[in-house]
């Protein structure tokens, strides 16, 4: 999975039936210091994430697992919302 920030939403009325009623979020991947890195992607929301929230997503075929596995065509799904930025530690503190 990868940390990301929800930076927007996409609306598509004409789409695959199994995507009906699913929210489409634009997510900007972040590096370990929570700085934007890489291309933004469109992710299906599985946990009720909103714009501006810090989340993590899951890619590949497993991205359809939160839904009806066999026919939800998604290759990127938000599967978790991070409690807060403070809840992301990258071990830079010296012991």
């Amino acid at each position: 999975m990868q940390l990301a920030r929800v930076i927007g939403t996409v609306v598509a009325t004409v789409k695959n039936d199994s995507l009906e009623g699913r929210k489409l979020l634009i997510v900007q991947s972040l590096n370990a210091r929570l700085e934007p890195q890489g291309q933004p992607l469109v992710a299906v929301d599985a946990v009720g994430a909103g714009a501006g929230e810090l989340v993590f997503w899951c890619r590949g075929k497993e991205a359809s697992f939160p839904f009806k596995r066999e026919d939800t065509p998604t290759d990127c799904t938000v599967v978790g919302i991070v409690d807060s930025e403070a809840h992301v530690t990258n071990g830079s503190r010296t012991r």
Binding site: G8, V11, A12, I26, E70, P73, D75
Partner: peptide, 29 residues
């Protein structure tokens, strides 16, 4: 990727990219 095979009618079709929606609006904060 292999998720393209989950699109309608793509069950065992040799595809790795499928159009699954027509976009109406894109809102970016």
């Amino acid at each position: 990727g292999s998720s393209a095979r989950l699109a309608q009618g793509m069950k065992d079709v040799p595809v790795d990219a499928a159009i699954v929606g027509v976009i109406d609006t894109v809102d970016v904060m």
